[in-house]
Amino acid sequence: MYYFDPHIHMVSRTTDDYEMLAKMGCVGLSEPAFWAGFDRGSAESFRDYFRQLTEVEPKRAAQYGIQHYTWLCINAKEAENVSLSREVIAIIPDFLDCHNVLGIGEIGLNKNTKNEAIIFTEHLELAVRYNQQILIHTPHLEDKYQGTRMILDMLCDDSRIDRGRVLVDHVEEHTVRHVLDEGFWAGMTLYPTTKCTPQRACDIIEMYGSERLMANSAGDWGPSKPTAIPDLILEMRRRGHPESLIRKIVYENPLEFFRQSQGFTFKSPDADDASTINDRTASEPK
């Protein structure tokens, strides 16, 4: 079965991972800008990062027939530095017309502070001004419930936001209902110890249905599994769910959401040729 990983950080992964993803059925992915594991020192570091996301990663992915898309922002953790954040937000428009950019993300909250909230709303302003889709990070562990409710407050406060063009990510049992009830899309992240396991994600699908719901690996530099979506596929099959439902969660729903972005030019592998594989980049030197 083909699948699309809507949230994965391939800058942190090896080229071998691209190959493994392709072998397991991944035909497309979207990579939000995120925290690199350390706080960057200047806006120019982010400019280089955005070049990596818009120039380098699409070529690495194309070697294995994977179509690569991305989202731009300064993440919630570094948003605690308001002045740096404003410098980064100012350079984002330079990249919004790049061929693989889907919107603004992953913005959100981390420790639910005032500064994070200020920068979150300034990202929303940017998205509205440039008619961009939005991908949202919700906090970890004990901060998730409070932070998700705060994020929903800020989104629902702004009548200019088209809720059908916003994906609120990392939902779990205690937050998914709030996100879906307000009309947003919801993403479940499959992690080994935090967030959702494939089994719990399957439970959530059974309890809340398949509308506006998708799953991702959020594979990054920490404990994570880039091939977590095939684990969910297997779990759903073992419970006896129909292939049509599985396909909706791991392929059709991401495509439906992303097609609202001007930058989404995804070509289905069901098309009648093999032109999705970019042979030209395969021979480029490292």
Binding site: D143, Y145, Q146, R149
Partner: peptide, 15 residues
């Protein structure tokens, strides 16, 4: 139970 346990591990939200 899962939702209740999650909430047990969560900071409170104040509107």
């Amino acid at each position: 139970r899962a939702e209740q346990i999650q909430l047990l591990f969560s900071h409170h939200y104040e509107d």
